[in-house]
Computed example of a mutant assay.
Amino acid sequence: MDEVATQVGAFAPLVMNAVKALVVLVLGWTVAGMIAGVVRRRINATPQIDPTLGNFVASLVKWAILAMVLVAVLGIFGIEATSIVAILGAASLAIGLALQGTLSDLAAGVMLVVFRPYKLGQYVDIGGTAGTVKDLNLFTTEMVTPDNVQIIVPNGQAWGSVITNYSAHDTRRVDLVFGIDYGDSADAAMQIILDEAKTDKRIHSDPEPWVRVTNLGDSSVDLTARLWCDAGDYWDVKFELTKAVKEAFDAKGVSIPYPHSVEIHKQA
């Protein structure tokens, strides 16, 4: 019995240390999240500072606090901070090789915040993946597609890919192509398109709407319209003007031909 009591007594400090470490870890994680939230709100409340920077700094603060919590947890088990530094120094090469992808994402995250090729709320295409930017933290960029699918892109891949930012400018050009029959008047059809464009208040008058004959196809004469609008109105203008022009063509007898072939017989 004395031997069992001795063994239990030997494990008691270890159990107590484990409980203390768990408490410190939970509290540290909670406090880190709370402080990061306060930092994010304070920075985002300043109109002069972009929200992208607020999210990034909050993420940086959270991970810095968690690093200090980890040191405190190891200290509970008797591992001093100087020993931790020595161990990390000796294992720096191995850690660097093991975490090279993560460190690359961290470095890329800093570059994304400094150069800001995209910001929160902008619609972008990163290496062929398109969506609205919802978050940019130390390691990843979070996007949401138009059909509400979450996409997580490592910052290293984002920084190393071609980035197309559809929201970078306040205005966008809408290009529409309409095909009419060869027997119809191109001038009349172009005037119909211009009239419909002028009735839409979302379409800018400067630059003025532009309509030209751009192609003589196998079955149709193609007319291209180039119109400018606010970036937020792009898709509504594109869809609604297409419908309006089609209905105006129908009302004024302009044909939109189906693809067809003409067979010609030659006598010897």
Rank of each mutant, 00 (worst) to 15 (best):
G28M: 01
G28V: 04
G28C: 10
G28N: 12
G28T: 14
T30W: 15
T30A: 11
T30G: 09
T30N: 05
V31W: 05
A32D: 00
A32V: 05
G33K: 14
G33W: 10
M34H: 11
M34Y: 15
M34S: 09
M34E: 09
M34I: 15
I35D: 03
I35T: 13
I35K: 07
I35Y: 02
I35E: 05
I35S: 02
A36Q: 03
G37F: 13
V38M: 09
V38F: 13
V39F: 04
V39Q: 01
V39I: 14
R41M: 03
I43A: 06
N44L: 11
A45K: 11
A45D: 10
A45E: 08
T46H: 03
T46N: 09
P47R: 13
P47G: 06
P47D: 10
Q48Y: 09
Q48R: 13
Q48G: 03
Q48C: 03
I49R: 05
I49H: 07
I49A: 07
I49V: 15
D50E: 10
P51L: 06
T52S: 07
T52F: 04
T52D: 00
N55M: 08
N55P: 00
F56I: 03
V57N: 01
V57L: 10
V57R: 08
A58N: 08
A58P: 01
A58C: 09
A58V: 12
S59W: 13
S59Y: 13
S59Q: 09
S59V: 12
S59K: 10
S59E: 05
L60I: 12
L60Y: 10
V61N: 02
W63A: 07
W63K: 08
W63Q: 09
W63V: 15
W63S: 12
A64V: 15
I65Q: 08
I65S: 06
I65H: 07
I65E: 04
L66R: 04
L66G: 12
L66A: 14
A67K: 04
A67E: 01
A67Y: 11
M68T: 14
M68I: 15
V69D: 01
L70V: 15
L70N: 00
L70G: 02
V71E: 06
V71G: 06
V71C: 12
A72V: 14
A72E: 06
L74Q: 06
L74E: 05
L74M: 14
L74F: 15
L74C: 13
